[in-house]
Nucleic acid binder design. Structure first.
Lengths: 366, 366
DNA sequence: GATCCGTGCTTCATCGATGAAGAAGCCGGG
DNA sequence: CCCGGCTTCTTCATCGATGAAGCACGGATC
């Protein structure tokens, strides 16, 4: 009998003169032994201070650990500041929790090596990857590990197939059509001088500035590419030249980028009368600058966002609602299905909706 | 040679005619073999499609998995809706991420058995537990597993010692003093008829209603107990009777509870002139009801919150700022220290600060 | 009385990797 | 020429639990 707390089933088994497997069954398969013996085993285990079956060892043997991972393009600390990312996690947890599955937030890093190491060493049954660039090695690493995957937003299904992960469940929206809808809304209001403030085009290099058409088309973030293409569709359908629309892009989806973008595009003369933002958080920054410049919204300037995340409603922001929570939920669901060997759905395209609030109005005359 | 992808180091080793340990070293301890051989091993592994060392098996052997868990009193899906919980996670991730540690969100459940099972089966190196009731079996389960712990808010250090976890790192604020400060602020403004809207007293049973002094003192949530005691300190110091202050309590920290509470306490005649809320989210609900009733804030009614979380600023809410992010960060830091065998700090008491905004003002005359 | 079956428990091999310790080869120093 | 020490790689045991298959026994069945 071990002097201190027994660490293994074996120790407890020896104490009782039964087999290790029986102790294991007492904990994990109550139907495999008589209730009396089970009680006795559990009581002895408790008395000796046995911590219970080691989940790591059990996981190794079973090939299942009861947790799914979530990997982001950006770091975790960023994720928690972004209402969209939080909503996604909320959705995923709503699905995972009732199934008893934990959610492992995979640490990000600016260092590519460490970022990949985190994916290699994540102890999970599967991975939800969110918003990766077309050529992000993180996805390749996950595929190489043979982990069941579910992808949110990007890469797009076609790209996934090219990356050797065909049939991977995918959840997203029609970014292009949605973006076209907001742009059309502004064009219908008579706006002719538009500007765009976007988040990043690529994971690397991180850069800010105006993006010409070649840069836009070369974006490795499919979401960025497609939303810009959607704006362009609407602009050209209205008979305007896309090349005349300044597109500022920052590195991520933050008010800071919105502020920088607003400063850049609103300095032009003549000033744009409407700014299309690739996210609500960017729009938040644009609104802040507009206020600082003394521009009345929407009388002097119309601003539209994307996402309909907190606090778009409070700001009166016209935007595109996308069901972010549902995206997270659908991805988690698909992943859990895959893990359980149930048939997982193909690409899931969720609906979007233009939400018109008070930040957009008729173009000013002249 | 295995027909399909090799699954183990051994397979790769056999292919190359080296030992399994060498392949292991090629991945995990580059300094333990010649660069040339390492290259060769990695190339072969890649060629064969070996997924890399299984993190589960490595974790078992090493006794370390590179992730810390976070367990909540409430479910995950609730956590993501509460800005305070999100801020806590943000803080924890800010600390864990640079260390390469993942964050496992342990699934909650209303079913006690499943809740404990989740703690038993969490594959983590340690656990941050947040805001548990004094007698929550979840804590006992974590202690029984022998997991390194760090506790946020509650149970209090004294209680932890009683539960067999003395010396467990603890992070929190002086809830009682902070609550007294807000209450004093209102009393100083001349308010004499106060009311309180609180969140839960116990994990179970979940119940709403007015809580008399016995119920308040018997709360198993130390945070609830202490904040109420703080209010009481200030009220009695002002020469008023605490028993005359209606204390409504709901189950959790949501606007819905605030609305129910407001409906209950504002129905009294004479009406309270000030409502103290145990959280900003509750205050949010109270403000909504006040608006619905046509009460002007702060002219007819003063409302104070607690936390200074989103969107307290936007609402102009007077509240107590507590450094929630830092709480999460400090807890994660302490836990990682413990896991690494570094000396962990004793109880960490973070500062709070009264933040006066526009939701509180002088008591109406008469 | 022989056969069959289900219950309750055991044995055995295995999940996949890594720490500790040991054995070759190579080097320089005495 | 021999020895100690370093590098590089190997062997061996082990981390802790569980699936699959097997054995023993009591009761039902014919």
């Amino acid at each position: 009998m071990p002097a201190d707390r027994p660490r293994t089933l074996r120790d407890v088994a020896a104490q009782l003169g039964v087999s290790a497997k029986t102790v294991s069954n007492a904990f994990s398969r109550p139907d495999q032994l008589s209730p009396a013996l089970r009680e006795q085993v559990l009581a002895t285990a408790a008395r000796l201070g046995y911590p219970g079956p080691n989940p790591l060892a059990a996981g190794l043997r079973r090939g299942r650990v009861g947790a799914i991972g979530v990997a982001y393009d950006n770091g975790l600390s960023y994720a928690f500041d972004d209402p969209v990312a939080v909503a996604l996690l909320a959705g995923a947890s709503t699905v995972a929790e009732p199934e008893g599955a934990g959610l492992l937030l995979v640490p990000g890093s600016t260092d590519a090596r460490r970022r990949l190491a985190a994916v290699h060493s994540a102890v999970v049954d599967g991975l939800v990857v969110c918003s990766l660039g077309d050529d992000d090695p993180l996805l390749a690493a996950a595929v190489a590990r043979g982990l069941p995957l579910a992808v949110v937003d990007q890469p797009r299904p076609a790209r996934l197939a090219a990356l050797g992960a065909p049939g991977t469940p995918w959840v997203g929206v029609d970014d292009r059509a949605a973006a076209a809808a907001v742009a059309r809304h502004l064009l219908d209001l008579g706006h002719r001088r538009l500007a765009v403030v976007s988040f990043g085009m690529h994971q690397e290099p991180i850069r800010r500035g105006l993006a010409d058409e070649a840069v836009q088309a070369g974006a490795t973030y499919a979401v960025t590419r497609d939303r810009l293409a959607g704006y362009r569709d609407a602009v050209e359908a209205a008979g305007l030249a896309w090349s005349a629309v300044p597109v500022f892009h920052g590195e991520d989806s933050t008010p800071a980028v919105g502020e920088a973008g607003a400063a850049a595009v609103l300095a032009a003369d003549p000033r744009p009368t409407a700014v299309l933002c690739l996210s609500d958080r960017i729009a938040e920054g644009v609104l802040a600058v507009a206020a600082r410049l003394g521009l009345r919204v929407p009388r002097d300037l119309s601003v539209a966002g994307f996402d309909d995340a907190t606090p778009a409603g409070g700001l009166g922001l016209t935007t595109v609602r996308q069901p972010t929570r549902e995206k997270g939920g659908a991805a988690a669901r698909a992943l859990l299905d895959r893990i359980a060997g149930r048939p997982a759905p193909g690409p899931v395209l969720l609906p979007t909706e233009l939400v018109v609030r008070t930040s957009t109005g008729p173009a000013p005359r002249g």
